[in-house]
Design a protein around this nucleic acid. Structure first.
Length: 569
RNA sequence: GCGCCUGUAGCUCAGGGGAUAGAGCAACGGAUUCCUAAUCCGUGUGCCGCAGGUUCGAAUCCUGCCAGGCGCACCA
């Protein structure tokens, strides 16, 4: 809680040659509650005072021993640390009051007010099925979208659809050779996917197919009617399929600006690059030599005149700056494209755009099979639809077993099943590779979304039984929570705001996911040691306020991850 | 060959200068006349990949090495 930090910083600044803000930064939460609730490390003072840190801590503690503050009760020296212990009554009351007052807004703030952040996420390649690999960009990007919005930014979600490029040449070639109208209509994305795989199988033996594909893409860029017709059709069919998945996941974008959206701007980009004199001809292609900057060269135009991925990304970056005037532009794209983004941002910088520094690649690791990486071309992928379906089925089975009388089982199954898949992806550090394992995906025990959702549902159940009065704030009741489990839970609830800020600073939703596991764990400990409904009087009112606040924190946190908090499950 | 990322308990992973390195899973034992046991409590395990260095202090920062992953001109 911020007020505790402020109080202690102010106190220490009166007896130390340090500004309150500096002290506030130094304050840390000790690893063990026996060391107190907030500690000031004295190492940095050792040099100024020419004394051992432990001695400084002793002297500071001695000077403060007779005092206590509003939110802290006592202070001791613990080795080189000055350890403050909270005053549970006032502290607990203040934390809970804040949660109750802010409600759905608890943890949110306004530090990003008036600033736009564009977030490029999901961005699937049209005409390829939505594989499990695509879920990472989709859920990480969407979580960042929600997190930045909670900090007061205007989040602008952009789905940079891969709806342009040589793969369309490949599809056109494949469809012209082997295509079948009925099969396409029956299950468009699956059929296009099979054609795509077949193309690559045949191209292994007959490399002229690749040349033919490049030719068709060139025709597409030249707006050849036949090519454009195919493209339009493939694109539309794919988008209809993605829409179902986005709807299921509750994801919306402000803009569906796919790569094709930038076609009209590519000539201007090439012209700009030539004008700035940073590009050169090489073997018939147009490249930018990034050697002086320690990067491999990038190609902006192929020798046949067609453009490339990075050309469109340059146009997109400039377009986004001009259109949205972003303070920050995030690209939630796999780590295997790190070099691409280094090159992209460097070219923007060479073009003289000062805002190039505001562009950030937010990379994440691959989802792999035990045996190796997934590959759309080779047909080795797991469909996201299948993962979601099986996860929901599993949730449905468990509900049937655990809570057969539940009124709306389907709704709970969706919340739990979808939450499990999302959480599995969000709870680990995004940079690490994930090994795909059905058993892990379908395990709802331990550190999972279901664990957190279950805590939420249990609280809702207690609150329902307690009746409508438990929603009324009461200062006195909130001051009675001094049992260890109550205090631990309150202290955990207190740090949601800083967790959200921390998650945004390093673009890591996993910080919030991990935090929610802590909240649920502390709640469960409380739940098993402190009866709520069978306690009486003011204490019961106080505990109801505590679990009400806990419910709010879980709901707010899960909302930032795009995960539902069911009232029953 | 060059560059980037990762290496922590049997497995999956937190911790990313600071106090005795923590969770979950798996194993074993316990808790339900009481708010949904998808829970809780207890038991055991660590050359924090290896070797140097910086620091009062290193799992954490730097250098080198090893292992795995990912990239490196006409794909995206």
């Amino acid at each position: 809680m911020q007020k505790l930090k402020e109080e202690i910083s102010l106190l220490l600044s009166s007896c130390l040659p340090l500004e309150p803000a500096v002290i506030e930064d130094l304050l840390e939460i000790p690893p063990d509650p026996n060391f107190g609730d907030l500690a000031f490390p004295c190492f940095t003072l050792a040099k100024t005072y020419k004394k051992a840190p432990a001695l400084i801590a002793d002297e500071l503690a001695a000077g403060l021993t007779a005092q206590k503050g509003v939110y802290w009760g006592r202070v001791t020296a613990g080795g080189p640390y000055l350890n403050f212990f909270i005053a549970p009554e006032a502290y607990g009351r203040e934390v809970l009051r804040e949660v109750w007052k802010e409600g759905e807004k608890y943890g949110h703030c306004a530090i990003g007010k008036g600033r736009n952040v564009t977030i490029d996420y999901s961005s699937p390649n049209i005409a390829k099925p939505f594989g499990i690999g695509h879920i990472r960009s989709t859920v990480i990007g969407h979580a960042l979208y929600l997190i930045f919005r909670a900090l007061g930014y205007s989040s602008i979600g952009v789905n940079h659809l891969g709806d342009w490029g040589t793969q369309f040449g490949k599809l056109i070639v494949a469809y012209k050779r082997w295509g079948d109208e009925d099969q396409l209509e029956a299950d468009p994305v699956d059929y296009l996917y099979r054609l795509y795989v077949k193309f690559h199988q045949c191209a292994e033996e007959d490399s002229s197919l690749e040349d033919e594909a490049r030719l068709w893409f060139k025709k597409l860029e030249e707006e050849n009617c036949e090519a454009v017709d195919y493209w339009n059709r493939f694109r539309r069919l794919s988008l209809e399929n993605y829409a179902l998945i986005y709807q299921l996941l509750g994801i919306e974008f402000e803009h569906y600006h796919g790569e094709s959206h930038y076609n009209k701007m590519l000539d201007d980009v090439i012209e700009l690059v030539l004008e700035k004199g940073i590009a050169e001809e090489s073997e018939g292609a147009l490249i930018v030599d990034l050697e002086p900057h320690g990067l491999p060269p990038v190609m902006l135009r192929k020798k046949d005149g067609a453009t490339l991925y990075i050309t469109r990304d340059l146009a997109a970056a400039i377009y986004r700056k001009n259109t949205f005037d972003f303070a920050l532009s995030l690209y939630v794209v796999g780590a295997e494209q790190t070099l691409h983004f280094q090159q992209l941002f460097k070219v923007l910088e060479l073009l003289g755009f000062k805002w190039a520094k505001d562009c950030v690649h937010v990379p994440f690791g691959l989802i792999r099979f035990k045996e190796g990486r997934m590959s759309t071309r080779a047909g080795k992928i797991v469909l996201l639809e299948e993962v979601l379906k099986r996860s929901i089925d599993m949730a449905r089975d468990i509900i049937e077993e655990k809570n057969p009388d539940l009124a709306d089982k389907e709704r709970a199954a969706l919340a739990v099943g979808l939450g499990a898949v999302r959480f599995g992806d969000l709870s680990n550090d995004r940079i690490k590779n994930i090994e795909f394992d059905w058993e892990k995906v379908l395990d709802f025990s331990g550190e999972t979304a279901a664990y957190i959702q279950y805590a939420h549902a249990r609280i809702c159940s207690i609150l329902r039984k307690a009746g409508p009065d438990c929603g009324n704030w009461n200062d006195q009741a909130a001051s009675l929570l001094i049992k260890e489990e109550e205090i631990m839970l309150i202290k955990t609830l207190a740090i949601l705001p800083e967790k959200i800020v921390a998650a945004a600073e390093v673009y890591r939703p996993s910080i919030i996911a991990r935090y929610l596991v802590d909240v649920a764990r502390e709640f469960n400990r409380f739940y098993h040691n402190c009866p709520v409904l069978s306690s009486t009087g003011e204490l019961q009112r106080g505990r109801l306020l505590l679990i009400g606040a806990t419910r709010q924190v879980i709901a707010n946190g899960l909302a930032l991850l795009g995960i539902e908090a069911p009232h029953e499950m």
